[in-house]
Design a protein around this nucleic acid. Sequence first.
DNA 1: CAAGCTACCGGAGTGGGCTCCGTTTCGCAA
DNA 2: TTGCGAAACGGAGCCCACTCCGGTAGCTTG
Lengths: 182, 182
Amino acid sequence: MSTSGRSDARTNHERLLVAARQAFTDSGGASLTAIAKRAGVGIGTLYRHFPTRESLIVALYRHDIQELIDLAPALLTSHPPLAALRGWFDEVARYGQLKYGVAEIIHAAAGGGLDDEYYTPFVHTIAQLLDAGVADGSLKPGVDPEDVLLQLGVLWRINPDNGGQARAARVLDLIVDGLLRR
Amino acid sequence: MSTSGRSDARTNHERLLVAARQAFTDSGGASLTAIAKRAGVGIGTLYRHFPTRESLIVALYRHDIQELIDLAPALLTSHPPLAALRGWFDEVARYGQLKYGVAEIIHAAAGGGLDDEYYTPFVHTIAQLLDAGVADGSLKPGVDPEDVLLQLGVLWRINPDNGGQARAARVLDLIVDGLLRR
DNA sequence: CAAGCTACCGGAGTGGGCTCCGTTTCGCAA
DNA sequence: TTGCGAAACGGAGCCCACTCCGGTAGCTTG
């Protein structure tokens, strides 16, 4: 993890994470300036440790993201590929609506960032699910997992309240149907 | 259109549109502050005429958007429903990559805005295309056109260069496949 | 033509994102 | 222990989106 470099850097890193977590749980979001102030460091320090807003959120939710990634193989052992895929999608949607920021990350990841820390594992996870479905004959071959990740990004745009859950489910239906073998 | 109210309001409206169009064609985008300055009006005036960035872009591209909307019925008379749907999607993608801002509008429309000026026509257009496909037996019934519009929003996220066109085509394939009758 | 009622104007003000660079401090090596 | 170079700090500064309100000038009515 972050056990290298100067000691002040390490403690500041820690303080920033604590402050950010507090800020997000207290009020569900805060300006980066406010987080830096709360952590008792300068804004420059925050940006040095977390160059983008996403990188900060990623650090906060690393655990949850890892859970999401680990879930896929688990689902694949306990369910047929298609059900695993759909179950995983549902879970992504659930995380996105529950935990502030997770969907935002997925969205950001899908958007532009190559070689980002979280992009590759996500693509890899989707690839696993797709491969299983192809092997099984339920999914069509040749689908680029990055394209699927991109599609999942729409979940981010759905307003959680006001029937957002149903809407997400419908959209996921459409996405999955697009992946089925025909 | 805008032929009511005070004369200064009308001319300012016009000046803002001209300035915005220049700014977008010159450099493919500009801050609202810069556009206001270019138009020789205060920033407050810009916001009064165009409360959101989208409303300004919409005003700029109203013509193109209308073309896009009008295209659907035309395609439906000259092509079978499925081809019309796909052709229209392609055109949306093309507009999105070509004309700055159009995809942004679609994205914004799909995102939050109810009763927005451009939202309803888009949904209506998609509904037409879907209905034709359902009648024809090529598309599955019961799909919410708003969900499809939401899905089209991903086109906005695709980087035009670096194989973006191919990517958009692949994603559209997936979306269309999700709509097919099975 | 005068005068007042509004609609409209303009930009100062607020707050957030992000950068840049002069200053500080850590920790290594002599 | 001391000196020094690199690493890290911190906040001033810039740009932007968006709001708010005191001032201004068009239109209408007499």
